[in-house]
Design a protein around this nucleic acid. Structure first.
Lengths: 151, 151
DNA sequence: CTGATATGCTTGAGCAGTCAAGGAGGTGGC
DNA sequence: GCCACCTCCTTGACTGCTCAAGCATATCAG
């Protein structure tokens, strides 16, 4: 097997382990999945904490229907609201509520801690993490808004 | 956001892109998913091309029920058979059929090509790939049987 | 104004995995 | 020999996504 195929299979494997870990902690402490958290985080980064649902789908690498289904429970528990566009009757916005913004802050702290734990044992150097992130960026398309490493 | 959290989210994002790409090509050419291919590949690496289903689950990072459901269609299309253990009536083996072994060879060629394409543009160096694989290994647990890079 | 086409979103059906429960078989204490 | 317990595997119910279809709204050509 080539190195390239080996790396691909490892990527798939590593992701399931990582997602499980985030889901466990985020779920236990805040009742949300990693996918939920990523959605809220992305919304929080948008101007006015709101995005058109189709743009949110694009940003998250999901389909529009995935966003509809994923947002439903977040609306139900009051972290996100639906807003309409006065100009264009087709579009609906997803927006963070005040509660959502507050809860997101807590979740972010938890997520940071999990990430720190994951990359702590066996000890990762700052360079390792930066390198890996750079390598993954080449694979995953644009995905996240530009993140400049904190040197 | 810390580098560690950033890298984690990129990992998740990169995986879905990568899986989509493998699924598209493997599905189109051979009618199997990346998960199917990984299962067959792992079976092919085992002595006698057979494994206890519980060990297969462990090797693939799945639960036993995940293996039951995943193998069902592969058995139905004749790539895998179920074998029993004369000594222990509880255990069932999953084994590659001759057809399965032959088809796996073709799939492997396809998968190698996809992996090569993925890591070709923008050009990845052999060192980049090795580095990334090493970094991912730290995250994903053991996962694959030891793979020593081809230098 | 009307009809054709494009866009935004939701919905039904399906797939791949999870967990919890349960059945069938094996093992050890007494 | 028997009963308690353990292991292997499957099944039912659920989640989180996909695709295909459909509805509502917008836009553009004539």
């Amino acid at each position: 097997m080539s190195d390239a195929l080996d790396a691909s299979l490892r990527l798939a494997r590593a992701q399931t382990a990582l997602v499980k870990r985030f889901d466990a902690s985020l779920g236990g402490l805040h009742g949300v999945s990693l996918a939920d958290f990523t959605t809220l985080l992305r919304l929080g980064q948008a101007p006015g904490s709101r995005m058109r649902r189709v743009d949110l789908a694009e940003a998250l690498g999901l389909t529009a229907s995935g966003v509809t289904r994923g947002l439903a429970p977040l609306e139900r528990i009051g972290l996100v609201t639906r807003e309409t566009d006065a100009r264009d009757g087709r579009v609906a916005y997803a927006a963070l509520t005040d509660t959502g913004r507050a809860r997101l802050t807590d979740m972010l702290a938890t997520a940071e801690q999990i990430a720190a734990e994951i990359f702590a044992a066996p000890p990762w150097s700052k360079e390792d993490i930066g390198q890996m992130s750079a390598l993954l960026t080449r694979l995953g398309g644009t995905g996240l808004p530009g993140h400049t490493s904190t040197p």
